[in-house]
């Protein structure tokens, strides 16, 4: 038991730091699990920094005005009735415009890098979305693993190698999202979508459907298992039966 509250004080920053650190560890934006995610993280950080700067400046202006020019009981008369200032108004257009153009450029370049479908992937997986589960097939190796809302399937990927994923839908719009990869792409009926991913971290990562598709949308989940290259090759060769 603590004798007084004062004894707790040294512990508080430790606790805050501990929980912040633990929380941050769960934030995919800070711990990307693929090469593409590492690229995307850069965009997140730049935009968040710019947003924070804008927020601080505008909040400061708002709070300052209220505190400084709040009408006091002894105030009388009217405040200065100015209603225009050409240089301020023009600046308030030009500076945000420059910022926005800069942010667009960063975004556009990074998007190009992530979207560009590179040739010669090491692995290819066909992902089929249907109400309400996923099916993963590895063409050329005869492996097909389908899930149900009660048992989620596992997508196996090799660490450090590029996998191309082809997305299909059997019925309605779905979306394939792996938060650890900071990436999602829709699976639309009548369309085929493709993207690359090169996982860098080993482990098991959550995957969810992120386009509302009806009754069991919330249960349409999957797991992504990233394994060492040798394990992956062995698993493929065994027809998907070898242990991971």
């Amino acid at each position: 038991m603590v004798a007084s509250l004062a004894e707790l004080y040294p512990e508080v920053p430790f606790f805050i730091g501990y929980w912040l650190g633990k929380g941050c560890r769960r934030m995919p934006v800070l711990y990307p699990a693929s090469l593409q995610a590492a690229d995307l993280r850069g965009v997140w950080i730049i935009f968040s920094a710019a947003g924070l700067l804008v927020a601080i400046i505008v909040y400061a202006l708002i709070f300052f005005s209220i505190l400084r020019w709040r009408r006091r009981a002894h105030d009388s008369g009217v405040p200065p009735q100015f209603k225009t200032n050409a240089s301020i108004e023009i600046t308030s257009v030009v500076i945000p415009l420059i910022m926005v153009i800069g942010l667009f450029y960063i975004s556009y370049v990074r998007e190009g890098v992530v979207d560009f479908l590179k040739p010669a992937p090491y692995a290819v997986v066909n992902v089929r979305a249907f109400r309400w589960a996923w099916s993963f097939s590895y063409p050329g190796h005869g492996i097909v693993q389908a899930g149900t809302p009660q048992s989620q399937p596992t997508l196996v990927l090799p660490q450090g190698k590029m996998t191309q994923i082809n997305l299909y839908s059997d019925d309605v719009d779905h979306s394939f999202w792996v938060p650890a990869f900071l990436f999602k792409r829709d699976a639309l009926p009548g369309y085929t979508n493709h993207f690359d991913v090169t996982p860098t971290q080993l482990g098991a990562f959550r995957g969810v459907c992120s386009e509302y598709c009806g009754l069991d949308h919330a249960f349409m989940t999957f797991t992504v298992r990233v394994v060492p290259l040798a394990t992956y090759d062995r698993w493929l060769a065994s027809g998907g039966t070898a242990a991971l």
């Binding site: 995919p28 934006v29 690229d39 995307l40 965009v43 997140w44 935009f47 968040s48 947003g51 926005v100 942010l103 667009f104 975004s107 990074r110 998007e111 992530v114 979306s175 999202w177 938060p179 900071l182 990436f183 999602k184 792409r185 992120s210 386009e211 509302y212």
Partner: peptide, 16 residues
């Protein structure tokens, strides 16, 4: 809003 106007950011944030 400005953040999610950027496709690379939206790839993670969309429908979340």
């Amino acid at each position: 809003g400005v953040m999610i106007a950027s496709p690379p950011i939206d790839y993670h944030a969309e429908d979340s």
